[in-house]
Design a protein around this nucleic acid. Structure first.
Lengths: 148, 148
DNA sequence: CCAAATAGGACTGCATTGGTTCTGTATAGT
DNA sequence: ACTATACAGAACCAATGCAGTCCTATTTGG
């Protein structure tokens, strides 16, 4: 599968929605209503995104959330990272003795490279891009064909 | 996070191990012992890989598993797909009415493109590559900078 | 016939995830 | 100052999925 969490999916939809009107201030209730996702869930996501400093918030009557940066300055990787934590495909990709294999594992460094390729791919797409109707294809050019 | 399952990780290690001696026939017990992973778990993985036709098997005394194709003809995407099913980052990426948003979701087609980029990245790396000590970096070239 | 090995299940404990609820705090308007 | 609105943060719960085990065939070499 290799899926992102459903909540992460929601989060991107939220962010893209806000990216369409970057200046605006949106309340959790308003966004929840607009997207058809339950209000508490939306609220939770917004809190996460706030703590990741992707959003700014205003309390009180007439308050709400707005993007902390310009839409082109926030990447999909940022949003995914805010909800799911740092991207690490494999156990060993984030160090520590989490993997029972560890030393002598021939695939470790190679996985890290794959890992990085994915991160770059997600970083290459901004909210501004996602807000457009149709993104241009992302080309992945693997260099292993050029290897000796 | 965006992690692959631990079992999938094991599976790649198994496959890479076998890719080092492509002709050989390995028993589940032998591989389990060699990698330090419990035998029943290894056996289960090998069965999955077999059903995905990435391995060939021989029963009976002296039997075991061997790669069904040459190491360069099996990609990491194949192995991941064999264990986790088809790659689909988002709910909507594999059609059906799984997503509550569905119509009117502005991010759908864009996610599909990201999805494809990841698939290509995983397909670009073969077992032969993984068996080498150090893979060359994989370059991801995003074209959205060239967009109008 | 027996032992080694795969084939294919069903089953279980546990961790993660999706989602809710509650209490607290700040703010605008009256 | 009071009140309604809205965010802040933590605790909590149910359900799904995953890691791992076990059991019962079936095949095959000696």
């Amino acid at each position: 599968m290799l899926r992102i969490a459903k909540l992460t999916d929601y989060a991107t939809v939220l962010m893209v929605r806000m990216a369409r009107e970057p200046g605006c201030c949106f309340s959790a209730a308003q966004l929840a209503d607009e997207l058809g996702v339950p209000q508490p869930t939306v609220a939770k996501l917004l809190k996460h995104l706030l703590r990741a400093q992707l959003l700014a918030s205003a309390r009180g009557v007439g308050g709400g959330y707005s993007l902390a940066l310009a839409p082109h300055a926030i990447s999909v990787a940022d949003v995914v990272g805010a909800i799911e934590g740092p991207l690490a495909l494999t156990e060993c990709a984030r160090g520590k003795g989490n993997c029972s294999l560890e030393r002598g594992c021939a695939t470790r460094t190679n996985w890290q490279l794959i890992n990085r390729a994915l991160r770059v791919a997600l970083q290459a797409v901004s909210l501004a891009d996602m807000a457009r109707p149709q993104l241009q294809p992302i080309h992945v050019q693997a260099l292993q064909e050029k290897m000796p």
